[in-house]
């Protein structure tokens, strides 16, 4: 057997997956911009993906902000630079930790749920039933979820940013002895519009990725319960990896030339 064959097989499988996911994404976008739109379903998905993810994303942001303040204080005190805590907390949260952690939490909570739901519909022939009832499954299942993911994650991240900064403020003022007014003034002074905007753009991209991966793996699941389980795992893993990869490229696009 040719020793290069396994490598070639892996590369071919990878390229096949990239092609299939790109085609799926293209179809999703095409259906996104053409009628009919199911506004009721879009609203329901926004509630499910956005509103009901608020507790988990909020808690993540709160404790991340608190830990960040502690860590930065401990590290910066070695150089007598404790005054930078507020600036680093707000910039770190808005640019990176807010969108990335919210994206990863959403991949676990929402990506898995979408893959399980759509996958179960696939293996129980409910998606075939949609087709026979003259309803395009892409428009009915994929578009509402992808649109809701793309729109609601930025909103979630905006809230998470505020909660995270509050967490840092809480630890800094109650435990580390910072003056509340000075801390808030430093936060406002060091925060730039671009910090928030880049974070929100990242959130939109991550939301699209999470919903798309959930739909893609669910839509193509087969083989009963085991297949749905595999689809769920693949949705979470692939969304998480793609979020980290996309994070680099969006960061490069916003801050790479500076």
């Amino acid at each position: 057997m040719n020793p290069l064959a396994p490598i070639g097989r892996v590369i071919l499988t990878f390229l096949q997956a990239v092609g299939a996911i790109s085609g799926f994404a293209f179809q999703a976008i095409r259906h996104l911009v053409t009628p009919p739109w199911y506004f009721g379903l879009i609203g329901r998905q926004m509630m499910s993906i956005g509103y009901f993810s608020l507790p988990v994303v909020g808690l993540t942001a709160l404790f991340t902000g608190m830990v960040l303040a502690l860590q930065i204080y401990e590290g910066s005190s070695r150089f007598n630079a404790e005054s930078t805590v507020a600036a680093i907390v707000v910039v770190g949260l808005t640019r990176e930790l807010g969108p990335v952690l919210a994206g990863l939490m959403l991949a676990g909570r929402v990506g898995a749920a979408i893959a399980a739901e759509v996958g179960t519909m696939r293996v129980t022939e409910q998606i075939d039933a949609l087709t026979t009832l003259s309803t395009n499954p892409f428009k009915y299942l994929v578009v509402p979820r992808v649109l809701a993911g793309t729109v609601t994650l930025p909103a979630l991240v905006l809230v998470a940013d505020i909660i995270g900064v509050f967490g840092g403020y809480l630890v800094s003022t109650q435990k580390l002895g910072f003056n509340p007014a000075t801390y808030l003034q430093n936060t406002v002074d060091y925060l730039e519009t671009n910090d928030v905007v880049s974070g929100l753009v990242k959130a939109g991209v991550f939301g699209f990725i999470v919903a798309l991966m959930g739909c893609y793996h669910g839509y193509h699941s087969k083989g009963g319960a085991q297949g749905v389980g595999r689809a769920t795992t693949n949705a979470v893993v692939s969304a998480s990896i793609l979020i980290l990869i996309a994070n680099y490229f969006v960061t490069e696009a916003f801050f790479g030339t500076k």
Binding site: M121, T124, D128, A129, T132
Partner: peptide, 14 residues
């Protein structure tokens, strides 16, 4: 398909 009805083996109810 609007002229067709289908009863699936596992019912396939939503």
């Amino acid at each position: 398909n609007a002229r067709i009805g289908m009863l699936f083996q596992g019912s396939a109810l939503f």
